[in-house]
Design a protein around this nucleic acid. Sequence first.
DNA 1: CGCACCGTTGAAAATGGTCAACTAGGGTGG
DNA 2: CCACCCTAGTTGACCATTTTCAACGGTGCG
Lengths: 244, 244
Amino acid sequence: MIEVVFAKLEQFTPLTAEDKDALRAAVTTIEAFAPRQDIVSEGARPDGVHLLLEGWAGRYKTLEDGARHTMAFLIPGDLCDVQITLLDVMDHSIGALSSCRVATFGRETLATLMGENERLGAALMWATLVDEAILREWLVNLGGRKADRRLAHLLCEMLLRTQAVGQSANGKFEVPLTQEQLADSLGMSPVHVNRTLQDLRARQLIRWEGKHVRIEDVEQLMAFAGFDPTYLHQVRSRTDRCDD
Amino acid sequence: MIEVVFAKLEQFTPLTAEDKDALRAAVTTIEAFAPRQDIVSEGARPDGVHLLLEGWAGRYKTLEDGARHTMAFLIPGDLCDVQITLLDVMDHSIGALSSCRVATFGRETLATLMGENERLGAALMWATLVDEAILREWLVNLGGRKADRRLAHLLCEMLLRTQAVGQSANGKFEVPLTQEQLADSLGMSPVHVNRTLQDLRARQLIRWEGKHVRIEDVEQLMAFAGFDPTYLHQVRSRTDRCDD
DNA sequence: CGCACCGTTGAAAATGGTCAACTAGGGTGG
DNA sequence: CCACCCTAGTTGACCATTTTCAACGGTGCG
């Protein structure tokens, strides 16, 4: 199950069997989380580094008025908090959006591992830099694009990211989110997300079946969204793979 | 002139005279940039790490339609690209917003320095983590707050950040930006920035004199904006200082 | 069966964008 | 020194997008 993180990291550089064993050995616990449950809470000083194995989670803050804003979607293979824990307190929370399984690494274990194993260290560093690049793109997406392009852009990103860890096939992937959770990340109301999704469906850009999205013509959706995949820094290109 | 970065880093931890000398010695060049000139361009692979000494710069991307979105304001003492250059290509640009002076560190010089000097390494790491925290807060600001609160929130941040490097006194600081540049960072039109500024002035929350902003009652502005300074992770509190 | 959650719809209202014009100030060339 | 021009800030009127409120239908589950 931890294999998913290998797929993630190997977008950047191939890992040896020893690298993988070392990572496997660094895992201290594996826990399950229910939807809406916090994996790491604001104000806490977590003891370990969390790796998402199954399900989706979100990085979020709660505003004065009680509204929630999601700053990142975390999918299987994503590390939640490699660096952040170096600061005194978490300035945001990480919460499960669907049912999740989460592995925890000991903080020091991982730190020494990154120090000793240069390839692994670089791969983990690359992963956090990509997360930051995604954050920047989200800011641009929110600040500069209208609702329909914005949603389309998010879906393009989801396609490429799920593809990279073998969670999509033939342009079809699972989005285990409610429209409200999507709304919280896009800075729009749930109602408008609903209408915008309908609009994208009407334009034949996407197909939505239950919790699954299918994108027939990726080129067309990317053109509509103004999507440029450079920011994902997926060095080694990857073809679709089936879920295992 | 490089002293400004000491003020910045000492928000996190005090530096010794040797630390400061080491940093000073790592500087290879100091350059001037005119407004609208790029300091680092998208697509480039910069050779050094840039430190802003004077003036303001912005991290930005250009959208499909030619619009520009600013993802961060950089003020004196800020490092532009400590980590980003580890990736293959810059996925965004850094441009001067006012007249700037910029110091450049040799990439390797700084890397070995961070490796050898633990205190300096930690301070620089802290600085980049804070930059990331600011990015997250901007995302929330953009996604979750209406125009007036959003602008007010940005001004609160600017006050605290300029204060921290001795660039503000008695709630008054310079904002060397046009309303259009503000608009590019807030995801709103220049016209609406103008009207929103007038609104804040009418509410007596801010005073705007030329390129200078004065905030009489910080508490009130923060309350209006829903501003919580935690995300700036200013460990060591600092009082106002005069420009030198 | 009934409750809770989610997606969906309609209509009214608010927020912010666009367009166009006008002003004020600073610099430049005649 | 003045005319000119460019930029930045400002204003008004109109329009587009998005939010809000309220209601309804389906579905899964205790």
